[in-house]
Simulated scan of single mutants.
Amino acid sequence: MYRFLLTRQWVILTLVVLALVPTMIELGFWQLHRHQHRVALNQVIADSLAADPVPVESLTAPGAEVKDADLYRRVTGAGRFDPAREVVVRRRTNADDKVGFHVLTPFVLRDGKVLLVNRGWVPAGPTQTAFPEVPAPPRGEITVTGRLMRDQTTAESGIKDLQDMPDRQVMLISSEQQQERLGRQVLGGYVELTSPLPKGAGPEPIPAPDHDAIGNHLAYAIQWWLFSAGVPVGWVILVRREVRDRAAAGRADDGNGEGGDGEPARTESARV
């Protein structure tokens, strides 16, 4: 009755089912891990934003990578802005999804090391290649406070780090690249400025991250697991339907080959 399962068509279908089930289960766990990562990151962000500011050099150093636990941690530093060495970061949007630049200004600490400070967003000029109008930062020695961030990479941001950019423009914030450009020791990572903010015209401050949203990863995980359960159920339904159809076809063939009294029907040539 089930010999049809050995036909080429059914062997291929069965192999596809056997491949789909573990793949869908794995995709479900992948989405679950993304959900768990997001929940953990949200907790890190919430804890970091609630913590008291600490000196920036207690969490990072030249050539260092910002740790996950220190992301968005509020840090402080005393020194002077160096607007002459300022660059802008291309293809950045503000809260209204307008495309412009982020302003990246070196902040020279008292010990001579440089802290990269993202002062906020400014609109683009007539063209993306022209350097925008950027309000000057505060003069003299001040203390800045900001959220500590990790160096940007193409893998995490999805933004390609293009070369041969217009003068004083970059695609990604990289302390390593800025250290080479400035010729000074640059602390790993950068900060998003939260204080002092401009009282008048100035770069638009970068808003604090949303640490309440968790996305749809958990729902996607459940969907994949439901699909993985539905595929073998569908295969069983198809097999039973095929058995039923073959049985019905067999009964029809038997009926066409027998007379009304159950005896084999005679052909015309046999009667002659």
Rank of each mutant, 00 (worst) to 15 (best):
V88E: 05
A50V: 05
I159F: 11
L71N: 01
D47Y: 05
P53N: 06
E57I: 10
I45V: 14
T93M: 12
P106H: 08
H102W: 15
R150M: 10
K98S: 14
F81Y: 15
N118G: 08
A78L: 10
K98M: 13
D111M: 00
R92K: 14
N94P: 00
G158S: 13
P132Y: 13
A84V: 12
P53T: 09
V117T: 01
E86Y: 10
V99F: 04
E156V: 09
A64L: 01
G77Y: 07
P126H: 12
T60P: 07
A46E: 05
Q43T: 14
L104C: 04
P126L: 13
T154P: 05
T60W: 03
D151Q: 07
T145V: 14
K160R: 13
V88K: 01
P126D: 15
D111W: 03
T127I: 08
T145M: 13
P83M: 09
P83D: 08
R150E: 10
T93R: 11
D111C: 03
D47S: 14
A51C: 10
V54K: 02
A69V: 08
P83L: 09
K98A: 15
V54C: 01
R74N: 11
I45G: 02
P123L: 08
R91M: 13
D111S: 04
E86N: 09
L59C: 03
V114G: 00
L41N: 11
R34E: 05
L59Q: 01
H102Y: 15
V56A: 09
D70E: 09
M149V: 00
E65V: 15
V39P: 01
A84W: 02
G63F: 14
G125E: 15
R92A: 09
T154I: 05
A46Y: 03
A46G: 08
S157I: 10
I142R: 09
T93D: 10
V114R: 00
E156C: 00
A155E: 15
G146F: 13
P137T: 10
G77I: 06
V117P: 02
D68F: 03
A136Y: 10
D82W: 03
V134L: 12
V44F: 04
T143S: 11
W121F: 13
N118Y: 02
G120W: 07
S157E: 13
L115Y: 06
R110S: 15
R150W: 01
A50K: 09
